[in-house]
Design a protein around this nucleic acid. Structure first.
Lengths: 184, 184
DNA sequence: ACCTGAACACCGTTCAAGT
DNA sequence: ACCTGAACACCGTTCAAGT
């Protein structure tokens, strides 16, 4: 059977979700598709790029309509969407935040946060600082939470994972700092 | 020559700093010590543990005396120390933040932040939320900055790395949110 | 355009055996 | 106690050759 890039990406996400990031190897993925490892390199230049595409796809699948009008409500909306998108697949937070660190793809959420802050009347440098801080909070929280969840399901008793309430409270802390500097 | 665990850890940090995390393999480290790969397993149970010990050592080498009294000044002090400690070695931020995510070691800075917040008069749950948010900010910022620095030194032109000023401004945003909830 | 087969240059880890 | 030698079960990537 003949495949296209989308088939490879979709199957990669299936393998990720079912067996985890450490099992998502080029050889494993090839076997899953019933193909030689070298065949993958006709669809994707290398593993790093594949993971960046997977990250973008995970984010795309989590897209939701934006309803909020006020800049701070929009920030909350974008952050919650981003968090939920990452948590929807096993190791999704790890994959997306790593891809983001390497600067490949994932520009979407950053741009939407940037626009929200711009509409909040912040000077350009604070828009940048705020956007990055928000992303660090969302990524860090999601990775922690997903790690804790998997540790818990693997039998380690562990403390409570934090969850959406903790996430929102952390976000509110940062938003308070931002609000006190907003010009709108 | 016969080695002890400390020799292995010290050499691991040398390899890390000189060649980067991706070159810090058990086989490479063994070769650097003039020993068979299998010999390392007499000093360390596996690579993950070695990296956790390396992370702790990087943090320990960055320890500084705490001078500040006020809880928020102490938070700034601990975060700055943590950041500087990570940035002192190539890929240090990646190593430390990964080790922290897996819950191994690195409890030191978290505990010091926790104590500072406790002295700020925060309720227990806000102490937790605040500590985690602070760590996410510090780790995220440090990893970003180190990645950008290495990309820049590798020739990619890239935007400015952010640097200590951006870091302090992000920290101040979060601290403002915390201060507005402090009972002291 | 898409894939096979074979290879290259590696990994982490285990384990019997040596000193 | 610390190390060797050899093996096991893998990696990502390249490349000539096939259809």
């Amino acid at each position: 059977m003949r495949y296209h890039r989308n088939d490879v990406v979709n199957r990669a996400i299936e393998v990720l979700d079912e067996y985890g990031l450490e099992s998502l190897t080029m050889r494993r993925l090839a076997a899953e598709l019933g193909v030689q490892p070298s065949a993958l390199y006709h669809h994707v230049p290398n593993k790093q790029t594949l993971l960046a595409i997977v990250a973008d796809e995970i984010l795309a699948r989590g897209r939701r309509p934006q309803r909020a009008r006020a800049w701070d409500r929009r920030v909350v909306e974008v952050c919650a969407e981003l968090r939920d998108a990452m948590l929807a697949y096993r190791d999704g937070a790890e994959v997306v935040s790593t891809a983001y660190t390497f600067g490949l793809g994932a520009g979407g959420p950053a741009n939407r946060l940037r626009e929200a802050l711009r509409d909040g009347g912040f000077p350009d440098d604070l828009v940048d600082v705020g956007t990055r801080a928000l992303l660090h909070l969302v990524f860090g929280h999601a990775v922690d939470e997903q790690t804790a969840l998997q540790a818990a399901s693997a039998g380690a008793i562990d403390r409570a994972p934090g969850g959406p309430a903790d996430f929102e409270r952390a976000l509110e802390l940062l938003l308070d700092g931002l609000r006190s500097r907003s010009r709108v």
